[in-house]
Nucleic acid binder design. Structure first.
Lengths: 133, 133
DNA sequence: CTGGATCCTTTTCGATACTG
DNA sequence: CAGTATCGAAAAGGATCCAG
């Protein structure tokens, strides 16, 4: 690990180490492939059942779907509604906070779509220079 | 893995499976904790040397810093400048594309800062309900 | 100083089997 | 249907040593 000597000239607004650590932790959870995909799917399709959500997300294992959606529920991004019926039925839906995060991620999705060709080209150039494996 | 039967009513603009896969792959790479932190650090501080970049990013090992920054270079997000001096000096700087991605992520950083209290509260409530380990 | 190479631990993830 | 439990493969990540 790289040593951080004294954190010298940090601007006052970024000075609080605990707050910064919390924001980092949140980013670490939310800036996740599956979280983003599930967020987008629920934003687009609204309330969904477990299996249907998995189908629409795409290549996600049931294990990761369960885990991610639970974490999102714990963070207040989705609400989980269990119907006491047989066979069981569980619906997932974004909260207002979940929708606001989805909106915040819109810029990243747009960026990815708009720059996909430039990225492919950059990779070709990099490959051609013979660097990396 | 959850089976995706036929992908029935997908809107035409999201129909291309190859394009969608590519955008997904890009999201998978940029929606990464280290990538976001390095992006932010370079956006805020401008051109930086390897060690200094690591210090400013924070708790990152040299291995992950090297790996992430190489990947970002391959994708055209940063330029790496090697000075033929002893001891060696290598500078990292965002490209225009890197800066545009940083801008796209701004909304997510703002979201994390603005909702940190709501998230903590949601976690307390969830914990109190006794769900999850 | 900037990493590459190596070893080792931890975490992630998928596949499978099983339950209410 | 909506999970939980478990196993093993694979990837992420850290620590250390070494070279140009």
């Amino acid at each position: 690990m790289i040593s951080t000597p004294k954190a010298q000239n940090i601007p006052p607004e970024h000075a609080d180490p605990e707050l910064d650590a919390l924001v980092r932790e949140i980013i670490g959870r939310v800036a996740d492939k599956w979280t983003m995909l599930i967020l987008e799917t629920l934003e687009e399709h609204g309330r969904l059942r477990f299996t249907r959500l998995g189908q629409l997300v795409g290549d996600i294992s049931q294990k990761m779907l369960t885990k991610t959606v639970r974490q999102m529920e714990a963070d207040g991004l989705v609400v989980r509604t269990v119907y006491p019926v047989i066979p069981p039925r569980v619906d997932y839906e974004l909260t207002d906070m979940g929708r606001s995060l989805s909106a915040a991620f819109c810029g990243v999705w747009d960026w990815a779509e708009q720059h996909r060709e430039a990225i492919m080209e950059a990779r070709r150039v990099f490959e051609g220079r013979g660097e990396m494996g």
